[in-house]
């Protein structure tokens, strides 16, 4: 099993974290939209936001680790793509980091605006750094906006991957699933 990323393909950690985060982030978007509409007597009224906060904090940790891993590893080459596609791809791939960071931090700031920590399941809790009552309003608006922006970028990213896979017959999608070809 290949661990590190090389110019030939992605290692197992990158692929695993990519798909885990992809599923979690899309799931979090749906969960977020659903949980704010729950009525007060719903059995999920408390547990749904608890899960949303917990998963969000774990995703924030994963994002930071993943960013460090990206910086410390080679990036598989995109030579087969057109120059325009390479530029857009680079913007989208690197853009995900600040976008997701801002999305997750705004959620954290919303929940900790009153000084309360964020509980990550019943494992541990993350203390508030900025105690600024009223901040939850701005943080909440940013969180909602960035969640929508993230889904648009995710969609763009997915469409591009499918285009490269089906129209260009490129390996950019399969290499994120199965790693570098065995003969390399």
């Amino acid at each position: 099993m290949q661990v590190r990323d090389t110019t030939a393909g992605y290692g197992m950690p990158t692929r695993l974290v990519h798909w885990l985060m992809a599923a979690a982030i899309i799931g979090m978007y749906v969960l977020g939209l659903w949980m704010v509409e729950l009525d007060y007597y719903s059995p999920y009224y408390r547990i749904a936001p608890d899960i949303h906060r917990s998963v969000g904090m774990i995703l924030l940790g994963l994002l930071l680790v993943r960013f460090a891993w990206r910086l410390g590893n080679a990036k598989p080459s995109d030579d087969e793509l057109s120059p325009v596609e390479r530029v857009i791809g680079t913007i989208v791939h690197w853009g995900f980091y600040p976008l997701l960071l801002a999305l997750m931090v705004s959620g954290y700031l919303m929940s900790t605006a009153d000084g309360r920590p964020v509980a990550v399941f019943d494992w541990f809790s993350v203390p508030a750094i900025i105690h600024d009552k009223g901040m939850e309003k701005t943080a909440g608006e940013i969180h909602e906006l960035l969640a929508d922006v993230t889904m648009v970028v995710v969609l763009l990213h997915a469409i591009a991957a499918l285009k490269h896979h089906f129209l260009d017959r490129s390996r950019v999608l399969t290499r994120m699933w199965s790693g570098p070809p065995k003969d390399q």
Binding site: M110, S111, D114, K133
Partner: peptide, 12 residues
């Protein structure tokens, strides 16, 4: 907007 029940998420 200035509603304050001492709980950020509830106030939101």
């Amino acid at each position: 907007d200035s509603v304050n029940s001492n709980h950020a998420e509830r106030d939101k």
